[in-house]
Design a protein around this nucleic acid. Structure first.
Length: 507
RNA sequence: UCCUUGAUAGCUCAGCUGGUUAGAGCGAGUGACUGUUAAUCACUAGGUCCCUGGUUCGAGCCCAGGUCAGGGAGCCA
């Protein structure tokens, strides 16, 4: 018997094959059992007809519960109604295990309920699609760098260095010494670049931020390239090339997955256009509404958002009332009542979201209007500015006081540091942070003192400026952030198999 | 740490200004139905209304404190 994966089933039309998988849905009527089987590659409807199989096979099929595991054989037949264009006319069913009552229903669930069952939630279609897109992104990143002679070299996870202060580090006991879980491999990346010319790291990163927002995890995966002989402009070219490569690859190879999650790819297709490069000064003027972008003004855009949110609220309430009246009229069939009730549930959830927006938007408006020149951007400022663009934007030349100690001062204006942040469109905000590194040993020493960092821990780093120092640059890409943007997820917790955040270490 | 919203059946929610025995849909169980796509239909079971204290003739609803969770600020990828 030929074994097949569901994704290839069409090639086997007319033949008899065996699938190994799990029951993802089941419908029954007299003499017929319809099984949706998933094998990790796809989903296929399998039809068990009492008239065509033995009594034993039919009763086995009837016994199956959701997520039971089995091996199922049958003839692949054409059926235009099916998603894959084919279904399986079953001849045999071999049960591996009958699953207990599966907790995740075919209906909607709350976030906490699903998070507690993440180990099972991963089996659902949407999560399947997200994880496959994540996989494609990782693959594209490796291809992109390997094709350009980068060497993957990993930084340690236990580290004695506190890159940007110790407040957000996880402390561990390392044979009696204090060690921290790495919050960036960048300093090591610089050392490795001086050995290899161009390197990239790809590993987990830890931040003990007590933040509960849709953009933060305590453990996330970061890609950190570092290149010798590169300045900030070459760095920006590389970032742009990398992002363009990732996005075009995902669009080209993940059509099914993007379809499953309902991602509209039109916006993503814009990445072929050049990414605008704004200085910090320009970006601040745009955020404060002093400068328009393509006829769009940041302040006006938020004000419009508030107006349309209020209008939407009225609209939703009217629709709920309409549907409630319909149900109350008593003229509907049972199926129509549940349909309307499901719609009402959905609308009520939307009300909560819209009300949340209405609480936040005025605060963001204020924050944008009163943005103080010289500060770093907040999450809302990033959202406000990126909403005006349809491609990622790069903001560079930041006030050196708000940026990390290792960034190079702008040779033309010492108030600025040559850092660059890349902000994703559709409100997603920062996905990349990077810059050109300071090469002047004295300036670095000053900065380390200014940031009150322990000098001894950075002696090795200063060596890089003493032995063959050259200009160099690099950046860090947050994997979950880009997954989040490409899949248009509402929260990063869905962008990683097992998210780690405040209050969540299990499962 | 601060601001803000919430916790009612296995799940998603409703429950009016405080008033008798707390409801619906889904899921589960049983039965019906030979082509279903979250199948449909009928019936059945299913509750410490998050915890502690208070106000009241009476609390799911009001008040105080706590626990847990969602969203946001700060900080960041």
């Amino acid at each position: 018997m030929t074994e097949a994966y569901i994704k290839n089933l069409k090639q086997f039309e007319g033949q008899t094959v065996t699938l190994k998988g799990w029951v993802s849905n089941k419908r029954e009527s007299k003499g017929l059992v319809f099984l949706n089987i998933r094998d990790g590659y796809g989903i296929c409807q399998c039809v068990v007809d009492a008239a065509k199989v033995s009594e034993e096979v039919f009763s086995n099929a009837s016994k199956l519960t959701l997520e039971s595991s089995l091996s199922i054989s049958g003839t692949v037949v054409f059926d235009e109604k099916q998603i894959g264009g084919v279904e399986l006319q079953v001849t045999n069913v071999e049960i591996y295990q009958i699953a207990s009552e599966y907790p995740i229903a075919k209906k909607e669930h709350g976030v906490e309920f699903l998070a507690d069952r993440r180990h099972l939630w991963l089996r659902s279609q949407r999560q399947w699609a997200i994880m496959r897109i994540r996989n494609r992104i990782i693959y594209s990143i490796h291809q992109f760098f390997q094709e350009q002679d980068f060497v993957q070299m990993d930084a340690p996870i236990f580290t004695g260095n506190a890159c940007e202060g110790t407040s957000n580090l996880f402390e561990t006991d390392f044979f009696g010494e204090t060690a921290y879980l790495s919050q960036s491999g960048q300093l090591y990346g610089e050392a490795m670049a001086f050995a290899m010319n161009k390197i990239y790291t790809f590993g987990p990163t830890f931040r003990a931020e007590k933040s509960k927002t849709r953009r933060h995890l305590a453990e996330f995966w970061m890609i950190e390239p570092e290149m010798a002989f590169h300045d900030i402009f070459m760095n920006m070219d590389l970032i742009e090339g990398m992002l363009r490569r990732i996005v075009t690859d995902v669009i080209a190879t993940c059509e099914t997955e993007l379809g499953v999650i309902g991602r509209d790819v039109e916006m993503l297709k814009n990445v072929v256009k050049p990414f605008p490069r704004l200085t910090y000064d320009e970006a601040v003027r745009i955020i404060k509404g002093e400068q328009d972008v393509n006829g769009k003004n940041s302040i006006k855009t938020i004000e419009e958002d508030i107006t349309s949110a209020n209008a939407r609220l009225i609209e939703i309430n009217n629709e709920i009332k309409e549907r409630e009246d319909k149900i109350a009229s008593g003229s509907l069939k049972k199926g129509e009542i549940s349909f309307n009730q499901a719609k009402i549930d959905k609308l009520k959830n939307e009300i909560k979201d819209v009300e949340e927006d209405l609480r936040n938007l005025p605060l963001w408006l204020n924050s944008a209007k009163n943005f103080e020149y010289g500060n770093d951007f907040g999450g809302s400022d990033e959202t406000v500015i990126t909403r005006l663009f349809d491609v990622p934007i790069m903001v560079y030349n930041w006030p050196h006081a708000v940026k990390a100690f290792y960034l190079k001062r702008d040779p033309n204006d010492s108030r600025f540091a040559r850092g660059v942040d890349v902000l994703a469109p559709e409100g997603y905000g920062e996905i990349v942070g990077g810059g050109e590194r300071e090469t002047d040993e004295q300036l670095l020493i000053e900065k380390i003192k200014e940031h009150e960092l322990p000098m001894e821990a950075f002696e090795w780093y200063l060596d890089l400026r003493r032995y063959g120092s050259v200009k160099h640059a690099g950046f860090g890409l947050g994997l979950e952030r880009i997954v989040c943007w490409l899949c248009k997820l509402p929260h990063v917790r869905e962008a990683i198999p097992f998210p780690r955040m405040m209050g969540r270490v299990l499962p």
